[in-house]
Design a protein around this nucleic acid. Structure first.
Lengths: 340, 340
DNA sequence: AATAGACTTGAATACGTATTCACCGCTGCT
DNA sequence: AGCAGCGGTGAATACGTATTCAAGTCTATT
């Protein structure tokens, strides 16, 4: 283990300048004469010097690191978002430290403390929520936290979501226009605003048109729960002619039960609509009609809001809702004369 | 921005002890008298003190951070692995800093340098490879790097893979035993050892049995390329009666083309075998026969090898191969009298 | 020609912690 | 009682960098 640590001191010695001069050369936005810069860079290259980020962070108070907390990656929407966030933040000079946390407040709070110990400049919570005791602490420390794809009753918290209520409404209107009479809903987890809002928008729109849901069951964002709910719908009494599922991930399980176990023709005998428009929704096996959550725009929004808060430009918290269109594919019967 | 940074100095002052004593209380494995410990902990709790990891790392030279570089998450196998790695490393006290890198040496090398600047204690390269100039530099710095799911001709590099050659062989033998006569292969990217080894094991086993591949096309680990290859197989001449696909992710696309576009009955008119056994392979829509890559054991192996190298216990690089069974499902015709 | 001023550079210091070393009091032995 | 030895604490220092401040050089202005 040779362990040849090259410091700015070493470079300074070789270049015949002082350590601060070396530091200045590697600090963007600081004036150094051309002659000095050349000497220093030459020496640095020769030694293979690169600034120690830890030492830099210690003194600047900026770690250029963002903590990302996520509960699970079963839902590919979060995978897609992670990938985009990573690239977007890197463009702005930030790196991501990632943590998996179980989705209960205790675990999340523990993880947030871990992140604070690492002096992260900001925190993104994806698919999890947190306690208000913690958000207060964060506010004191001046570390911004933003929720991704989750809302929060505490409006002092910034959050980026899609327009879930409007999305649920779109689905209801589309299915009603398609002439469906018994529309069931396998909702997203009711412990999450995302699940609640989609459900609420859907139910409200039905009511306004004088209809009411055939049935509503909490699918808990789980394939197994969604599959079980689907079976229960067809076990007794009148069966639904359409099912709105709280996200695509569950919708795939629903489709498999309908097609494989019950032998129903999707889009003809029964309609299915999802939410998210993950890449798989476009696969021929599923061909899922769904509400698009524009991951690109959501990520852009959360990154720019987070960076603005870090840099002190945005001091006010914001709740940002990104609207997404209904993507019509073959899994649900289209209304008469429907035009894309 | 109140920014109430509490330091060990503050705690020391309140507790009426020296700063080193505070440090000792928070450093595992250092002796402190019970009386001191109590005083310090009480003061620390009152102030809400938590040690600054950056400052600690600067002096110990241990950042307790692992850099993870990955090219893409299209293949869910890597998502699964990421999740498990995160949890496994956390159990050992390490955190993950994640980077996305394009899969060419230049980009990867750039990212590795970024990681070194952050003083990571170790680096995991998943689904990407690197230049030998870089590995030498890493060796000098004493930072271990391990490849995940990729081999490397340079045997001074540690790597964890599944037994790809043996896996390819298993598939060939299974398909031959099933009476298939025209076995085609859509390989994994031939620029990666994973793709090459599976292909080589497959081809070698065929040859030993006096058979030869119906056709071999590089699927580049891409759905589109795999779909195109499938179409080409059935466009002219004699069509294959079985296709071994280099990973599950591509196999799903192959199945969709065979079923949806060509109207073939999977498992009867044509057999498909994949590689990885990602969760989706068990979904009824695909029901894919495939070689399991045991993510759990692969992750356990890479984590323990990496930590051993970091702690200086394992100085020798190791190439670890984890064997995985063929998981027989419905996508390929089973040999006569096959027993699970 | 003299001086105000703009620019650069180096010396000193700070960031928050872990660790070395000297020192202290105490126990236990002869 | 005296001394070796041990466990525990504080003073000083180190980690590698960014930043403040004073001092220095050089240009431009009167």
């Amino acid at each position: 283990m040779p362990s040849v640590k090259v410091t700015s001191q070493d470079v300074a010695r070789l270049a015949g300048v002082s350590q601060p001069t070396v530091s200045r050369v590697f600090t963007p936005g600081v004036k150094v004469s051309k002659a000095m810069e050349d000497k220093v860079r030459r020496a640095a290259d020769e030694l293979g010097y690169r600034p120690n980020t830890l030492a830099r962070s210690l003194i600047t108070g900026q770690s250029m690191t963002i903590g990302l907390i996520v509960a699970y990656f079963d839902n590919p929407f979060y995978v897609e978002a992670l990938e985009k966030m990573s690239r977007a933040l890197k463009d702005k000079g930030y790196n991501i430290m990632i943590f998996m946390a179980a989705n209960h407040a205790g675990d999340v709070d523990q993880v947030v403390h871990d992140l604070l110990d690492h002096q992260v400049d900001g925190i993104i919570l994806a698919s999890v929520s947190t306690s208000s005791a913690l958000t207060e602490r964060l506010h004191e420390e001046g570390v911004p936290l933003i929720l991704f794809n989750r809302g929060h009753e505490d409006k002092s918290l910034s959050a980026v979501t899609s327009a879930n209520t409007a999305g649920g409404r779109k689905v209801a209107e589309f299915l009603l226009a398609g002439g469906h009479k018994r529309i069931a809903h396998i909702s997203g987890w009711q412990g999450a605003s995302t699940g609640r809002d989609r459900c609420a928008g859907f139910a409200k729109a039905l009511k306004e048109k004088g209809a009411e849901p055939h049935a509503i069951v909490d699918g808990l964002f789980s394939r197994e729960a969604a599959a079980a709910a689907t079976r229960s719908f067809f076990a007794t009494g009148e069966s639904p002619d359409a099912i709105f599922v709280g996200n695509d991930h569950m919708a795939f399980a629903v489709i498999e039960v309908l097609k494989g176990e019950l032998g129903l023709a999707i889009g003809q005998e029964v309609s299915v609509v999802g939410y998210d428009d993950v890449a798989m929704s476009a696969w021929p096996s599923f061909d899922l009609t769904t509400v698009r959550q524009p991951a690109n725009r959501m990520v852009d929004a959360i990154v720019s809001q987070l960076v603005a808060q870090i840099e002190g430009r945005a001091t006010e918290p914001r709740q940002i809702e990104i609207d997404g269109p209904l993507i019509v594919r073959g899994s649900a019967r289209k209304p008469e004369g429907w035009v894309a």
